[in-house]
Structures are given as C-alpha cells and as structure tokens.
Design a protein around this nucleic acid. Structure first.
Length: 745
DNA sequence: AGCACGCCGACT
DNA sequence: GTCGGCGTGCTC
C-alpha cells in the first residue's frame, strides 16, 4: 500500500523563491543519476520547477530545477545552465509526487522524472508561422504608405494570420501587398505556438437522465470535487451506470475549470469510453498511451501542461503528465492487473494515483464492478469511502452460473479427435443455437495447443530464450513463444529422439476449441478471437458490430472479450477451463479468476433475453467456484481476506521482490547467494529465496528472485536500500526491485 | 542514459 | 599492424 512513506504536509509554498544569476541550483536530469548543481547564468531568473537545458559531459540535456543548490562541488566543475525551456514549470505537487514514487519504488528520481518528461522530447511545442508587424513603419522601410498597406498593417497588428491570403481578406485588400511588406521588413514571419488541438468539453452538451440511485451517487461524488483529498470507491455491476455517474463528477470538476485524469487499464479497449465522452461532452478528450505517435504525444503533453487539455483518458503513464490544474482523478476498472507496470520503474498506477490525489489534495474515484481485495479492505477499514450503485431495474446482476463437473461429465471423443466440451456444455450450446441466440466459449489461452509433445520420447518443444513451451498456432502455421515473440516452424523430426511425424498437440487453446465447435456445429458461424487477431484498433469495433448484428453464432475467445460490452443476443457463456489460473504462484490468482469469470459471465443475456453461464471445472468444491455459483462475492472475499491475513500477505504485510537477471547464470546465482547471506535479520522481516523465477530464462536472461516480507508496520524501503548497499553487484547482473509485487516466486 | 576510455580478436 | 568488440566509470 502506498502509505509506506510519510507524506509531507501540503506544502504551502506560495512565495516560490527565485534564483538569480550567479545562484547555484540543483537540476534533476531525467537520467538514472543523482541531481547535479549548476550555476544560473547572466540574464536568467529561475524558479523551482523550471525546465532548463544544461551541459552534461559533452552533450546537452533538459532537466528540472529542483531547488537551491547545496552540493559542495569544486567551483571549477560547476557549469552554467544554457537556457530556460519555454514551458510552464513543473509544479510543486508533481515534483513531490516524482520524489515520492522514486522513494517508494526505490528507483532513482531521474528514472521517474524521465516518465514525466520523455514524452515531450524535442521541447518544441507545435508551432505555426504567423505574420506580425516588425515594428518598422511603412515609411521607414522606404515604401509609400498607401491605404492598402496601412490596412494590411493595421489588420496584422490587431490579429494573427498564418497566410498572406487570410491577412489580405481580413484587411479587405488584395493579397499582393503582403509580399511587399514582407520584403521591406514591415511584416515578419515568426513561429507562434499552435493552438491546442483539444476543444473545450461542453458540460451541458448531453446531460444524462439519471435514475434516483444514480442521481444520489452523482451527488455524493460531486460534493467531493473541490473539497480536498478523498478516495471513493464507485462500485456497481456493468450496466449499472458507473460511467454515467463518474462522468458527472468529471463535469463538476470541468465546471470548476479544473482538469481531469481518467486512468484506464488498457487504451486498446477504450474506444467505447472515448465514445461515451464524446456523447456526454461533445468533444474528444485527450488520449494518452505509450504508442501515441510522437507528434500527437508532444502536442498532448504541452496541452496538458498549459491546461488546454481538460480531460485526459490514459493508461498508466498518464499519471506522470504535468497537469496544470488537476481537480479529479478517476481510475476505471481499478481491479485490473494491467495497472501494474512490470518493467522499468515498477509501480502500481492505481496506488500511485491515490498518492498523486493526496499530494494534490483532490478527490479520486476508483470504479469497478469487482473491486480488488485491497480496495475492499480499505473500504472496510474506513480509509476509502464507498458509493454503491444498485443494479438497474430489469438488469440482472449476474446470470445463473452453473458448474459442470468434468470428472462426472468427461467430454466424448468425436470423429475429429479429442474434445474439450462436456456433454452438458454441448447441450447448452445446442439449445442456444436452436433459440436463435449466440454463445461464447471462453478460454484464456491463445493458439491451438499450449504444449507440443513428441509421442515417441516425451520431448516438449520449448522456447530457446525462455523457460516456456512453444504454443502451436495453426492459423499462422507456426510455433510461438508468448513471452518473447520467438517463432519457428514445426520441426519435422524430434530434436531429442529423431523420430519423424511424432509431434502431437497437447491441451486446448481457442483455435482447437474453435475446431471442435466447427466439427460439432457445421452450420453455425463460428469465430475465434484473441489479442493476436485484434491487431488493428478497428478490428475490435468490427468484431463488436459482427456480434451485435448477429453475423456470428458461436464466439470462441480469450480475455479480450471479457470486458466492457453489451451483447443482448449472447445468452450463453461457456467457460472451457474455469480452473485455469487458480493454481500458480500468484497471490491474486484466485481473485483475478473470480473477477474475470464474474465479468465474462456478465456478458450473458441481460435485458429481455435471460442469459446463463456454465463453468467447466475439475474442482467444483473450490471456494472460487462456490462463490461464483452462489453469486456470493462476500463469501469469496471473506475467504481470501482470511487466507491473506493468515499468511501475513498484502495488505496485512508488505512484500518487496528482487529480480536478479543476466546472461550468465553463474553470476546471477552468485549474487543471489550473496544477497541471501547478507539478508536483513530485523524483527518482523523475512527473506525468502533466492529461487529461479517462474520464467527462469526470459529473452535469454537467467532470472532469480528473492522476496522480502515485512510486517505491515515495518517500512521495507530502507531495509532494502541498506541490504543492497552491503552487496557488490557486478554490472552484468541487473537487480530489479518490485515493491508490492503481484507475482511472487 | 549516453559517451568516453581501455584492453583483446579478425581484417583492410 | 589497425578496426572494433562491449566492460567500467563519469557526467555538476
């Protein structure tokens, strides 16, 4: 939990100190180096937060003035700042936030700062040429002050024009005169920053009609806007109107002239939420994610900094944007694991969003139909407030969920080979098709078969760079590693025993389920869908349209179908392997499975056509399965809470994982041993490992993990810092620190 | 992060 | 004999 490090009281820093020429200031660079001091040159006055260009070695970098310079560098080493960059200074709260995140995640401050600055690289805000008077009069330039020239000059003085034609039109004269004025130096062309591409949202554009419960929720949320820091959990099933409700809180903040950040787990799936914004406010909000084209990125960054972009809908990294006047943060689908950044600076965007809200003294809303366990516990402890949206009239919360015990109902073998659908599932699909409705067969596994095995010797095809099986994809006729992207053709002979034609696929992926479905229901229109077939942004939209207009009878798909859409004719959801994801080393595996199955099941029916969900399981007595069939989240949560408390796992204890990696396994193991030997022995601290990571080799790097566990009231950060300082780590071994890891061991 | 300096293999 | 591999170290 992000409360590990004491937060400074709201810094009252109205009188920002100025740094005059000759002063020594600390400049934080967006590099993994400590902050360096520089001298303010003649003719420049700076304040903390100003962005400046400084010399570094033989190159130049853009950094941020962090404050008064206090290091005692030899005077000869102190170099002059080159110039101030013409952008608004990073405000105090953003700088505090960057420092806080660095301290919490144990990353160098510069590495965190980089996330805030990198997107703007280039520093030239988009600009357009405009015609401006140079100050020299027409007669001074040696021209005759004709009426047309005077009109042109007057028009250019009054307003900015980009083209000669536009200026001439405004002046009511011909365009020819502009050329003369330019040539004589009466007018000049200068670059002016381009207007923001983001139009102002219209809070009155389409006010929704709210039901009583929604109106009450809107009141609750809107009251918090402008009233300082608060965390509110907005929960309610899909279709209960969560989005409509938080959009009204957004409207409240906008009406106060403040900016709003809406964090979403995956930008690929936000086409719908963008559409809802447009529907509500009449304009497209600014979007933010890592693969925005460079130009758009820079324009967006500058518009956010300048305050012209009023609403940003973005993925994790949007958290580090330089908002000028942030008034509200919304985290949509707060339970999603995608908020956890897993490489580079490792952080939980939802947790860090709460910290940013606290430092900025603004409200934050966590929206989800299935809030995460941590969030639920925080609500119970009174740390977060809760606004609950009841289901709408006529919209069932969840369809009836049935379990199919795979031990009692093993799938029957068909002429096509092995099958994976149990007879009750087949029957349910038959009924659905007969009723002219749609079915979804859900399996969170891409490809044809997760493992390919040699039937002669038992050899399994695995990735040469990772500890992972190669997944057969029949569509592309290739074997793929889902971790590093390695691909190969299916070999003719087995590398271990030289047998030919001996490889057999083992287990199902969605392609294999689709194959079975095609064999069983030859007249049905069947479509297999996974993230790899949804590469274009428009592909999802097309798919949704195909489902809605009933051009598909049976949909076979992965997680990509789990969230966010209403399909009224889809009345059966069959989960092929509900046990998948229940085992494993992930603390939150059961929770995630519960959330996912809950969401998948939520696809079924609604409105006038009732739906149902069937889960195939080998373990029908499992808590997750039982909680699902009884639609009893409370029981499930209680059970999970108890389990975590018993093991002192988060949020009842704190975890920090160290991931050692490098091309040389011996070196990695040696560092692991050293760390274990010098592990902290404080009270309330426990170190587990080192052990090979789940993916012991990833992209050719050997990986070992250690896990530090502390009691809830023990801050792990200083312990880890001291620990690492005791061990000499060769450059060939990288140590990644994962505070609050999601997967352990 | 860059970019240098610095010490060992295959080429003009 | 040099060009160049990337290991270690520094940047106010």
């Amino acid at each position: 939990m992000p409360s590990a490090i004491a937060m400074p009281d709201d810094a009252a820093s109205d009188a920002a100190p100025e740094f005059s020429p000759g002063a020594q200031v600390t400049v934080q660079l967006p590099l993994p180096v400590e902050a360096y001091d520089y001298r303010v040159p003649e003719g420049l006055t700076l304040v903390a937060g100003d962005m400046v260009e400084v010399p570094l070695g033989r190159r130049f970098e853009v950094g941020v003035v962090w404050g008064k310079g206090e290091s005692d560098v030899p005077a000869g080493k102190l170099r002059d700042i080159v110039q101030r960059i013409d952008v608004p200074p990073l405000n105090d709260t953003l700088r505090q936030f960057i420092g806080w995140v660095a301290g919490y995640t144990l990353q160098p401050m510069g590495a965190v700062l980089r996330m805030a600055l990198n997107p703007a690289r280039g520093w030239q805000p988009a600009s357009v040429p405009v015609l401006v008077p140079s100050g020299r009069s027409i007669t001074e330039a040696g021209l005759k002050a004709t009426l047309a020239r005077q009109k042109l000059l007057a028009a250019a003085t009054k307003e900015r024009f980009s083209t000669a034609a536009a200026l001439a039109r405004a002046a009511g004269v011909g365009a020819g005169g502009v050329r003369d004025l330019l040539a004589a130096g009466v007018l000049a062309t200068v670059n002016q920053s381009a207007p923001s591409p983001f139009a102002n949202p219209d809070t009155a554009h389409a006010r929704p009609r709210l039901e009583a419960a929604q109106a009450a929720a809107v009141r609750d949320l809107s009251e918090k806007v402008g009233a300082g820091y608060s965390v509110t959990v907005l929960d309610g099933v899909t279709g209960s109107g969560k989005t409509e409700v938080y959009l009204e809180a957004v409207a409240t903040a906008l009406a106060r002239g403040q900016q709003v950040l809406v964090l979403v787990p995956e930008i690929a799936l936000t086409a719908q939420s963008l559409a809802r914004f447009v529907g509500r406010f009449g304009v497209r909000p600014a979007e933010w994610h890592s693969d925005l084209p460079g130009k758009v990125r820079r324009a967006t960054w500058h518009s956010v900094a300048g305050g012209e972009a009023a609403v940003v809908v973005g993925a994790r990294s949007a958290l580090f944007l330089p908002f000028r006047n942030l008034g509200l943060i919304v985290v949509d689908e707060e339970h999603e694991a995608a908020f956890k950044q897993e490489d580079g600076v490792i952080y939980q965007a939802r947790d860090m969003a709460i910290v940013r809200a606290r430092l900025t003294q603004i409200p934050i809303v966590l929206a989800s139909a299935t809030p995460s366990l941590e969030t639920v516990i925080n609500v119970r402890k009174g740390r977060y407030q809760r606004v609950h949206l009841p289901e709408r009239y006529g919209a069932a919360a969840l369809p009836p969920i049935g379990l199919i015990d795979m031990r009692a109902h093993p799938p029957e073998k068909g002429p096509w080979g092995r099958s994976w659908l149990a007879p009750p599932m087949v029957e349910a699909v038959n009924q659905t098709l007969a009723a002219g409705e749609q079915a979804l067969l859900y399996l969170n596994r891409r490809g044809y078969a997760p493992v390919t095995i040699c039937r002669t010797c038992g050899y399994r095809l695995h990735c040469p760079h990772c500890t992972a099986w190669l997944v057969e994809h029949r569509l592309t006729r290739r074997l793929m590693c889902h971790h590093c992207g390695y691909g190969a053709k299916l070999p003719e002979t087995c590398a271990a025993c030289s047998a030919t034609e001996s490889f057999v696929p083992c287990g199902p992926g969605i392609e294999r389920i689709a194959e079975e479905a095609v064999a069983r229901w030859p007249n049905a229109r069947i479509r297999a869908v996974a993230s790899d077939t949804m590469d274009r942004p428009s592909a999802i939209a097309e798919l949704i349209d195909d489902i809605l207009s009933h051009r598909i009878d049976i949909l076979v798909g992965t997680q990509i179908l789990a969230k966010g859409h209403h399909f009224p004719q889809l009345t059966l959801v069959g989960v092929v392997d509900a046990d998948l994801g229940l085992s494993g080393s992930d603390l939150r595996a059961a929770e995630r499975t519960f959330q996912m199955l809950h969401q998948v099941a939520g696809r079924a029916g609604r409105a006038e056509r009732p739906g149902r969900a069937l889960l195939q399981t080998h373990d029908p007595t499992n808590t997750v399965m039982q909680a699902l069939t009884n639609s009893d989240s409370e029981a499930f949560i209680a059970c999970e809470v108890e389990g975590r408390e018993l093991l002192s796992m988060p949020p009842f204890g704190r975890l920090v994982a160290l991931i050692l990696s490098g091309p040389d396994e011996v070196a990695v193991t040696a560092v692991g041993k050293q760390l274990a030997a010098l592990a902290p022995t404080d009270d309330g601290v426990e170190v587990l490992g080192p052990a090979p990571a789940v993916l012991a080799i990833l992209r050719g790097r050997h990986r070992h993990r250690l896990l530090l566990k502390t009691a809830r009231d023990v801050l792990p950060q200083p312990i880890v810092t001291a620990w690492l300082a005791r061990v000499r780590i060769p450059a060939s071994v990288r140590v990644q620190i994962d505070v609050d890891p999601y997967s352990f061991m």
